[in-house]
């Protein structure tokens, strides 16, 4: 039996507004993310990467094309809660405890009280936050709040994680730590991830494939395979790592003939 692709986009486009003032946010998107695969969307502002993520999440309707998540139409997948999502700002509810926040998606979909508690604590343990279960969001640092948001995204053990620049507001050191955590968690849960970022090293470190996008209109220009094996801290200093970063950077710049003359 073939496992359905986590995400299958065919000919997807999105237009905002009407007539001459219309903005083509994305156009002609063909992309398949396999089950368990980690794919990043990277590109400059206005390339439509966040819009694309929201189309997959069924928060925005595409103007054309088909969107399948886990083999189903995106709206069905949302109703079935097949994915978890994390945004750039953690968006924790300040009136709930950390535990209460992780329990939110569970409570909304009828999971019983005792079971909710157990699952939430398990997830917090996975993120290393078990000691903070009774704290309030205002008592946590930005990095910790974001970890709670990720724990919340994992609450229903989804096959797909959608993440919109979740580490964008964090400092570099915390960012690198969170990236390693994320890799560990994905390995343990086997979830596929679509990860929006504008940091090239982040995209290369995390993903199996980097989807390079460019703006006006938003489209995919290139998809780059990342030839790195298991990701650990040593990878950050490997030559292949830097080479792939250069590869992505050049793809972002458009691979002009002038650039290709430089050393590989």
């Amino acid at each position: 039996m073939v496992t359905a692709a986590a995400v299958a986009l065919e000919g997807v486009g999105k237009r905002f507004g009407e007539g001459p003032a219309a903005v083509q946010a994305v156009t002609g998107i063909d992309l398949t993310v396999a089950a368990g695969e980690f794919a990043s969307l990277i590109g400059p502002s206005g390339c439509g990467k966040s819009t694309l993520l929201r189309i997959v999440a069924n928060l925005i309707e595409p103007s054309e094309g088909s969107v399948l998540v886990n083999g189903k139409p995106a709206s069905r997948a949302r109703l079935d809660q097949d994915y978890g999502i994390a945004f750039q700002s953690a968006g924790l509810l300040e009136w709930r405890t950390v535990q209460g926040n992780v329990e939110l998606p569970l409570g909304l979909h009828g999971v019983g009280k005792a079971q909710r508690r157990e699952q939430a604590l398990e997830l917090l343990d996975l993120m290393g936050l078990a000691d903070f279960a009774s704290h309030r969001p205002s008592q946590l640092s930005g990095g910790m709040q974001q970890r709670v948001a990720i724990a919340r995204a994992l609450a229903r053990r989804p096959a797909l994680l959608l993440m919109d620049e979740p580490f964008g507001a964090l400092d570099e050191m915390t960012r690198e730590r969170m990236q390693s955590e994320l890799i560990r968690i994905c390995a343990e849960t086997g979830a596929a991830v679509v990860f929006v970022t504008h940091s090239i090293p982040e995209a290369v470190f995390l993903s199996q494939r980097v989807v390079v996008m460019s703006p006006r209109p938003g489209r995919i220009t290139e998809i780059i395979d990342v030839p790195l094996g298991a990701r650990d801290e040593d990878v950050r200093e490997a030559e292949t790592f830097f080479a792939t970063i250069t590869d992505v950077r050049e793809a972002l710049r458009g691979r002009s003939p002038v650039a290709e003359e430089g050393p590989a």
Binding site: L59, R78, F87, S89, G91
Partner: peptide
């Protein structure tokens, strides 16, 4: 908060649930 609104939509929460869980405490 727009982030909370998107979050609730991603949970396919009904308008009443969104009101109960987010709007009222907010």
């Amino acid at each position: 908060d727009p982030v909370h609104a998107e979050l609730m939509r991603s949970y396919a929460a009904s308008p009443w649930t969104t009101t109960k869980v987010v709007r009222l405490p907010g």
